[in-house]
Amino acid sequence: MHLDACIALCYERKLLSESVVRELCEKAKEVLLKEGNVQTVAAPCTVVGDVHGQFYDVLEIFKITGKCPDVNFVFLGDYVDRGFYSVETIMLLICLKIRWPHRITLIRGNHESRAVTQTYGFYAECMRKYGSSNVWTYITDLFDYLVLAAVIEESIFCVHGGLSPSIHTIDQIKIIDRFKELPHEGPMADLVWSDPAPNTHIQNQRFTGGGDDTKGDFQISPRGAGYLFGKQVTRQFLDTNGLGHICRAHQLCMEGYQILFDDLVSTVWSAPNYCYRAGNLASVLQIGPELDRFFNVFGPKFEGL
């Protein structure tokens, strides 16, 4: 099938047949295999956070910012699970990736995983729409090829979750063997799972006491696995790599974005009214030619009603 025809079908939210999905996933793997773990991206560009199968909100993003290839996109991951249209959403993005590989970067999020998608909806959606798990298998196999990070104009580091104590330099990310299911621990897990430590600029409000947290080191999550990264380690990472800012997704925020650590880190969230009940706004981060950052905020399209 002709790729442009697939793209047109995807934009109409049509379900591609199982064999077409298989073929497209194979093609996308060939494209992604050529990409390093850390993609370099030119400005101006638009950074998109979690979309979670909210297909109509993805269309809204294209309406707001312009479509591929007119706009250079960086997607920060979490394309599937929770929303009603995970298959349609990821297939649209995969088609765009094959068609214009240099105009769209797809970073891996923690939901681009076999483990997570069995519980949070994508597996069930594939079974419901196709009557078998084949499509889920093709797409989750493809997830193993997604890149781990991007750097915009040698200045803005883009990743799904955040920093890892095992990673000091971008080169250390480049040498990870990424072609596998997301592990529970290690640098690859940290990149997709870690969160910034909650605001410590409000003295002793959310996290009190002495210790390392007030300085902004890494901390261990009370869940017993996973790291929180503080302001100091963020500054260190940026300085070491000659970067200015970290743009990540992974955490819901009512305003659609959040700026942390005196503007060293920002969170972009692109799924409005998350799970069709949170009532939150969403945003995309538009980065201009001079690397000026603008959070373009938008509301839900009420696809769930």
Partner: peptide
């Protein structure tokens, strides 16, 4: 297993002060 690995690799990283 996570904690064991973390202690080995990053022994100085502590649990958050007030869990």
């Amino acid at each position: 297993e996570w904690t064991e690995k973390s202690e080995k690799l990053h022994g100085k990283i502590k649990q958050i002060a007030k869990p």
